[in-house]
């Protein structure tokens, strides 16, 4: 049973792709937006947010903090994303915006 547990741990540790906070684009100056997200309590939720927001033009990074239940968006300074758009995208991912700090 101990061996089984160790193998399961190894599978889950090494089978997941690297959880990167940045999408690999080179970018110029960026600004950050901190979004409080209600209901974001697990890795599946966090990955949903990443997948949805990396589809947005100008989003260079998505940094998830489950402890604070928040998501920091790194946005190309030349790009714009409105609060309404952020709320819409968070809702589309299945969650609810608590607050937005720019």
């Amino acid at each position: 049973m101990k061996k089984l547990f160790l193998i399961l741990t190894a599978i889950i540790t090494f089978s997941s792709p690297a959880l990167a906070n940045h999408n690999g684009k080179s970018h110029g100056p960026i600004k950050t937006i901190v979004v409080g997200v209600d209901g974001m309590v697990c890795d599946f939720c966090a990955r949903s947010m990443e997948k949805i927001f990396y589809q947005e033009d100008g989003v260079e990074g998505v940094i998830i903090d489950l402890d604070k239940e928040s998501m920091t968006l790194e946005i190309d300074e030349a790009a714009a994303i409105s609060d309404e758009r952020i709320k819409e995208r968070v809702y589309y991912a299945g969650y609810k915006v608590r607050d937005i700090t720019r």
Partner: peptide, 25 residues
Amino acid sequence: LFRGTTLVEAGYNLDGAVLFNFTQQ
């Protein structure tokens, strides 16, 4: 055990059956 988009569950039923679950997104 749960990391990223991979979920694994393992258990032992009190009736003697091994339980193992796997989900990948």
